[in-house]
Amino acid sequence: MRVLKWTALPVVLIAIWWFATAGSEEFYVPPLQTIIESAPDVWTLDRLRADVLPSLLRLLAGFTLALIIGIALGVLIGGRPRVRATVEPVLEFLRAIPPPVLVPVIMLFAGIGDGMKVLVIVSGCVWPILLNAVEGVRAVDGVLTETARSYGLTGPARLWRLTLPAAGPQIVAGARQALSVAIILMVISEMFAASSGIGFTIVEFQRSFAIPEMWTGIIVLGLLGVLLSGLFRLAETAILGWYHGLRRAQKG
């Protein structure tokens, strides 16, 4: 029954798509059948290795760097009220800049290579992580802080066993926002200036009017988004299992 409810609507939607476009004469909306048939030719192993893998690696590198920088700075800033008050307006401003406009700026500095794309992703992703980390570190429960102090929990132990876990839920929330920004930036930076990558490939198909291929590209990108968010959720369950349990317990 659950499986049925879980699959019913997607099946219906795909069926509608299939039949509504079957025999479509519309150049830009080819039949779903055509799209699916063209997929194996387009997304060969070579192409996955040449275009999808580099994109993913850049995404991973940028996101990881942003996590490290964001959390490190967040811990430094969050625990110091005066520093926080000083830098917060600047951070709020930097966070509010729509990340894609940083692409042209970073192209100035870093050209159009891999470094530029990773840098673009870092520069867009770091803000939600950083600001959430600051907020999470600031809001560590006072009783926990005093417990830690009275048992002599200091230095790295304090960081690993008190500050980071306590700020964890906030940091993860920031990281989730950052991940969707990262995907946007991965695609945009490749659309702007690249000779490989999934964003580049899709735009190439569009420009050369390879429409069914373009559709497959969009579907692959969509699947990538779904896959990444699924992986993120797995990681979140592993890291924040305690938090979800706590929330459920509090709700009663």
Binding site: T7, I184, V187, V203, F205, M214, I218, L221, L228
Partner: peptide, 26 residues
């Protein structure tokens, strides 16, 4: 709610920039 849950879970993470080429041609 039960019927749409899977569809929402699937469509939501699709990055909207993926639609860029499509909207351009359409």
């Amino acid at each position: 709610r039960e019927l749409t849950a899977s569809t929402i879970e699937f469509l939501r993470p699709i990055p909207s920039v993926a639609l860029i080429p499509l909207v351009v041609v359409l």
